[in-house]
Each structure stands twice: as C-alpha cells, then as structure tokens.
C-alpha cells in the first residue's frame, strides 16, 4: 500500500526540545490520531509535514514528494488547519472562500455551501466577530471544500463546545468515507481519536512511544485488579507498565496483554478479581506516566 506520509529517522533539535529519530508511515486512505501531552512533538511533526521546518536528519515524504524541497507540489493536495490558525479579521468568510477558490481548481462550491449550512456559519460575517468554534469550523470549511488528498489537523476540536465538536466530528467522519483521502490529526481529546482514527501514534518528549492500528493497540492494554502480596521485581512479566497498591489490593497495567498473564499472576499467589479493557484515555495517562518514569 502506498504511503501518504512517510517519515524516516527524522530528528530536529531546538534549544529546549528534541524530536528524536522519528519514523512514521500513514498509508493512503487511513486516519491516524497523534496523541501526546503539550511539548510531546505533535505540532513539530505536523509542521515538518507541511515543509515549514527543515529536519536536521532523516527524510520527510508527503504524497510522494520530498519535503521541504517539494512542499509547493505536496501542498496542492494537503489541507492543513491548526488551532492557532486565524483568518483575516477585517474580511468576511466569503472573501476567504473566494481567495481559496482562486487558488484551488478543485474547490467544490456546492459542498462549500453545504458546509456553511451544516456548520451554521454566516459567510457575510467579518471574521473578527467569530467565536472560537466558528473560527475552527470556518478553517475546516476552507480546507474540506477544496477536497485535498491529505488532511492534517492540529488539535481540531480543542476548545469547542459539545455541539460544535459533534458538528466537526460528524463532518470529519463524512469526509473519511472517501477511501483515497488520508487524515492525520493531533488531539488531546482521546475520545475523538478513538472515534475517528484507524491507527494511533503516541509521542512523548519528542520520542515515538507507539504507532499501531487502533484495534490491535487497544487490545494490547489491560487493567488487572488482584489481591495479595506483590513484588513487581519478582513477577517476571516484562509488559507491566504500572502497578498501584492500596493495602493488599493491586492494580496492574499491562501493555502487551495475553491470556496467560492472569494464570501467571495466580501462580504467584495473587488472586485476580478482574481483567478490563482500557479506554484510550486511560492508556494515554498510563503511557505518559510510564514515559515520565523511564
């Protein structure tokens, strides 16, 4: 399968941050959620993919073009929006739509009008009167109506009220029906990523912690509750990410679960009372804690 995005051993050093040897692939037609706390390297990664940052080492290829050298060709088919992106406040949305239409022959005017209604936006309103939610929706309209092959979104739902968030997510779900369109989006909101993405990539302090398809990834993690005297060093289970003790009650987080683990815990004299799948949010927190301890 051809990759819409391919990063190979990419490094980028700043005075206070280091993106460390990042390798990542996003196959065409897939949706990847990029998860990480502030300062994890999400925005740096997305800016590398827009050709706005030159990597110190490694290579960045987007839609078959080498970046940053061929960013003009790549960006013909990339729709990019970030939460810090603003439009010209003295002009209205219609003016911005006309500007984008004059640049992209692929602009779909009918779809743009459809999005205006779905997002409940007034095209004649000047941008300075827009709320945060309206700004996000306006930026999405401008990129979705030009039908890009690759959509890159940096925190698209941050700060949105529940209604606006639902409108944005349902429209994103709609565009994902196009099997040739690839999407990479970063978010703090693990629910959004769980809802939309095919694969999940975790970044922490500039390092790639994990990148895998969503189902396999979620299936790997378990929260095991057991009672008994526990000695983590003596458990002999490598995939334990975290152990919390409360008296004799223990909560064990494992990141490479297989069915033999409860039996092995029982063999060590522990009484396993429950084995639960974990939400992405719980996994996110466990991953960050494990990264902080490492």
């Amino acid at each position: 399968m051809q990759n819409a995005i391919e990063l190979k051993s990419v490094s980028k050093r700043y005075s206070d941050f280091y993106l460390d040897n990042l390798s990542l692939q996003l196959p065409v037609g897939q949706v990847m959620g990029l998860v990480g706390v502030n300062g994890a390297g999400k925005s740096t990664t997305l800016r590398l993919l827009m050709g706005l940052i030159q990597p110190d080492t490694g290579s960045v290829d987007v839609l078959g073009y080498r970046l940053p050298e061929q960013q003009v060709l790549a960006k013909q088919n990339i729709g990019f929006a970030s939460d810090d992106m603003r439009l010209y406040k003295t002009e209205n949305l219609r003016w911005h739509m006309q500007l984008i239409q004059s640049i992209f022959p692929s602009w779909d005017a009918t779809y743009a009008e459809h999005l205006l209604k779905v997002f409940d936006l007034n095209a004649e309103q000047k941008f300075k009167g827009f709320s945060h939610g309206q700004r996000v929706k306006a930026c999405l309209l401008l990129i979705l109506a030009r039908k890009p092959k690759l959509v890159i979104l940096d925190e698209p739902t941050t700060g949105l009220d529940p209604v606006a968030r639902e409108e944005v997510l349902s429209e994103l779900a709609e565009i994902l029906r196009d099997e040739n369109r690839s999407v990479l989006f970063s978010s703090h909101n693990t629910q959004d990523i769980e809802q939309l993405s095919d694969s999940i990539t975790f970044l922490h302090k500039g390092k790639l912690l994990d990148s895998q398809d969503k189902e396999t990834y979620l299936d790997r993690w378990r929260r095991i509750v057991c009672t008994g005297d526990i000695n983590s060093a003596g458990l002999g289970i490598d995939c334990i990410t975290d152990i919390k003790r409360n008296g004799s009650l223990n909560e064990i987080i494992v990141n490479q679960y297989d069915d033999s683990i409860p039996e092995r815990l029982s063999a060590l004299g522990l009484s396993v009372s429950s084995v639960d799948r974990m939400s992405l949010e719980k996994i996110f927190v466990a991953n960050v804690r494990a990264g902080a301890k490492a």
Binding site: L52, Q71, L73, Q76, G79, M85, L87, I103, I143
Partner: peptide, 8 residues
C-alpha cells in the same frame, strides 16, 4: 499559518 498552508 493560514498563508503557509497554501502551496507556497
């Protein structure tokens, strides 16, 4: 960022 998202 809006301008630099264009093909330039």
């Amino acid at each position: 960022p809006f301008i630099m998202s264009l093909p330039i």
